[in-house]
Design a protein around this nucleic acid. Structure first.
Length: 426
RNA sequence: GUGGCCGUAGCUCAAUUGGUUAGAGCACCGGACUGUGGCUCCGGGGGUUGUGGGUUCAAUUCCCAUCGGUCACCCCA
């Protein structure tokens, strides 16, 4: 087999590009409706933009190299550091809160699997300069509306939300110490995957006692019963955090997306910089990787750009979303692109056909005709293969009377038209 | 980065368990069809069987390596 694209990279043939464009259109449509404006930055950045302050785990998976100017640079693996830099540079002059979105192509040097390549496009939506949970609700609603615009419902996709502050307070409340926190998070993250004994063993290794780890497991499942959960929250002294989260959930109700949302303390976003409410979108069948993930990162702008502004955002990749749309029959197949096919009935009318094509194109129609001198039967066959919506035959006898034959796609008969009038209305 | 499984035309798959020149459908191109498409019939291009070694009289088939894909780890966008 001839060598294709590099591993983890994609060739976008017209069919695939049509699908990509469909996704991009949906993204831009939702972003616009939520008042977000589009920005972009360079695909190459200084390496230390990622190595210095961002999560250390990202660094092992960078595409990085030294350029001819002896600079250490990297292909961007995520958009947030670029965003932070750009916003920080003009923070004082921008109306807050900032609502920005971007569709960058991002790169990671990782072994590829289904739904995870070395390159992908990712919708990033961020709100900067608003600390209230109403911003969190707004952002989540936008992410969910993206699902809606692709005709997915809450039957297809679930939004799982958690809150770092609430979870921290609860964990402290049951007796998890700061050094044990990482192990506790890891255990929560693996709750669905690893058997409980394994998790208990790991927690014990981190110094977490049996009774504490028992409470930990209880916590994760406790959110189903709100009254009982409130008890746990009160006992842990996390009332303020819980109130915030409940207000957030109320907002999602008003924004019309509450039915998609499920409180789930076991979701642990990997990135170290999240500080508050976090969320993930999953397909309800649980077949695919996360569709989307995001949350609040109130301290990141300060550490990256030196400007203290609360912020939150999410990233949604095109790969998993595309697979979901295809598997649920929500990916439209590319439709006919050609509006009119101009056929010539004889060699003598080729120039006339070209003139007709030119006039239609000037009117904004997409027009194709057979290059080279082709027989009419062949031209008509080609028109059909191209799925041209309409085919007009320009031929000398009719043309001398100012007429032409027109036939619509998949229709049996043809009709004779006055060419001038037809050109004006097509 | 670690381990399991899988690699035959653009796509979906064959090839009598190692046996002659690797086939078919779809797709594509052309002919039948010198002013009327879709149907039909006929023809054509396209493969160093992912690649490189090895075993054998003989390898798509068995072995090793490598590359690619995939799944699980790892990690997460």
């Amino acid at each position: 087999m001839s060598p294709g694209a590099l591993p983890g990279f994609r060739d976008f043939y017209p069919t695939e590009l049509a699908e990509r464009s469909y996704i991009f259109r949906g993204w831009r449509d939702v972003a616009r409706r939520y008042g977000f404006v589009e920005y972009d930055g360079p695909p190459l950045e200084p390496l230390d933009l990622y190595t210095k302050k961002s999560g250390a785990e990202i660094v092992d998976q960078l595409y990085n190299f030294r350029d001819k100017g002896d600079r250490e640079i990297a292909l961007r693996p995520e958009m947030t550091p670029t965003l932070a830099r750009m916003v920080a540079a003009r923070a004082n002059s921008m109306r807050k809160p900032v609502r920005w979105f971007s569709i960058p192509q991002l790169f990671r040097y990782e072994r590829q699997q289904r739904g995870r390549l070395r390159e992908h496009f990712q919708l990033n939506m961020d709100i900067i300069g608003e600390a209230d949970v109403s911003a969190d609700a707004e952002l989540l609603a936008a992410a969910i509306d993206v699902m809606s615009v692709f005709e997915l419902s809450s039957e297809d996709v679930v939004a799982r939300v958690s809150d770092r502050r609430l979870l921290n307070a609860l964990l402290r409340g049951i007796g998890i110490t700061e050094p044990q926190m990482a192990a506790a998070y890891a255990a929560l993250d693996k709750l669905d995957r690893d058997p409980r004994e394994v998790l208990e063993h790991r927690l014990a290794a981190a110094g977490v006692g049996a009774s504490v780890s028992a409470q930990l497991f209880e916590l994760a499942g406790a959110t189903a019963d709100e009254a009982a959960f409130t008890h746990i929250v009160d006992a842990a002294g996390a009332t303020a955090e819980w109130d915030d989260l409940r207000r957030y959930l109320d907002h999602t109700e008003s924004l019309g997306v509450r039915e998609w949302v499920k409180l789930d303390l076991s979701i642990v976003r990997g990135l170290a910089y999240y500080t508050g409410i976090v969320f993930e979108l999953f397909d309800a069948k649980g077949e695919l990787r996360a569709i989307c993930g995001g949350g609040r990162y109130d301290t990141l702008l300060e550490s990256l750009g030196g400007v203290s502004l609360p912020a939150l955002g999410f990233g949604m990749g095109d790969v998993v979303l595309g697979e979901l749309l295809k598997s649920r029959g929500r990916m439209p197949v590319a439709e006919a692109m050609v509006d009119v096919w101009v056929a010539y009935g004889d060699a003598g009318s080729v120039e006339d056909a070209m003139r007709v094509a030119a006039r239609l194109r000037a009117r904004g129609r997409s027009v194709e005709y057979a290059l080279g001198n082709q027989k009419l039967a062949r031209q008509l066959k080609a028109a059909h293969t191209a799925r041209a919506r309409e085919t007009v035959v320009i031929a000398t006898p009719e043309l001398s009377a100012g007429e032409a034959m027109v036939r619509k796609l998949d229709e049996k008969g043809e009709r004779k038209v006055q060419l001038e009038a037809w050109l004006e209305e097509t």
